[in-house]
Simulated scan of single mutants.
Amino acid sequence: MEIPKVFESEYRFCRILWENEPVKSSDLVRLCQEQLGWKPTTTYTVLRRLGDRGVLKNENTVVRSLVSREQVETAQIDEMVEKTFGGSLPAFVAAFTRSHKLSRAEVDEVQAMIDRFREEEHHD
């Protein structure tokens, strides 16, 4: 299943939805007004747009997501790595580490991910 594209302002909206779902649309309007400074019409427009694209479902004024935060974030990163680095994870990591100093704990965490991947690959 291809994850629908979620743009920046929509992502901020989705974060509120994911933290509160299932949520009544009227409560979502209030939360978006408080946290994003949106007018009710803006929230209802985004609700409709994301519903049309299959990101959420608004049924009987109760809103639920159809895609998870992890799915959306993974799709965004995949798109960025593909578009910016030709799909090369090593090129992405090299660019990232040129401008971000990794702590020893972060290096250990990345190494543990690589080790898990190699272990899973070995068992396939």
Rank of each mutant, 00 (worst) to 15 (best):
N20G: 09
A91H: 07
F7W: 10
E10T: 02
R48E: 12
K39D: 14
V93Q: 04
N20F: 11
E34F: 05
I16S: 10
Y11N: 11
A75C: 03
L50A: 00
D108L: 11
G37P: 04
A105P: 04
S65Q: 02
F92E: 04
A91S: 07
L66K: 07
N60A: 14
V107L: 11
F85P: 05
Q111M: 12
R98L: 14
E120F: 08
E82P: 04
Y44W: 09
L17V: 15
L56Y: 02
G54S: 03
H123Y: 07
E19A: 15
S68T: 13
E109C: 03
M1R: 00
F7Y: 13
I114D: 06
E82T: 14
E59M: 09
T43S: 11
F7S: 12
C32W: 03
R49K: 14
V72C: 00
E119L: 13
D27E: 15
A105M: 10
V67R: 00
E121C: 09
A95H: 06
R49Y: 03
F85D: 05
D52P: 02
A112H: 10
E79R: 11
G54I: 00
A112T: 09
L36F: 10
T43C: 14
R69A: 05
R49L: 10
I16Q: 03
I77S: 03
R104Y: 08
D52W: 01
C14E: 01
L50P: 00
A95L: 08
S68D: 04
D108G: 13
G54H: 01
T43N: 07
S99K: 06
R64A: 04
V107Q: 08
D115L: 13
E8K: 15
A112S: 15
R104A: 12
E119F: 06
E73A: 05
E73W: 01
R116T: 14
T61E: 13
Y44E: 08
K101Q: 10
R104C: 04
P4W: 00
I114M: 11
C14A: 15
E34R: 10
Q35K: 13
K57L: 07
L31A: 12
G51I: 01
Y44V: 03
Q35H: 12
L66Q: 07
A95C: 07
E8S: 15
V55L: 03
D115T: 12
R15W: 02
G86I: 05
T97F: 07
T97R: 13
A75W: 01
L66N: 01
V62S: 12
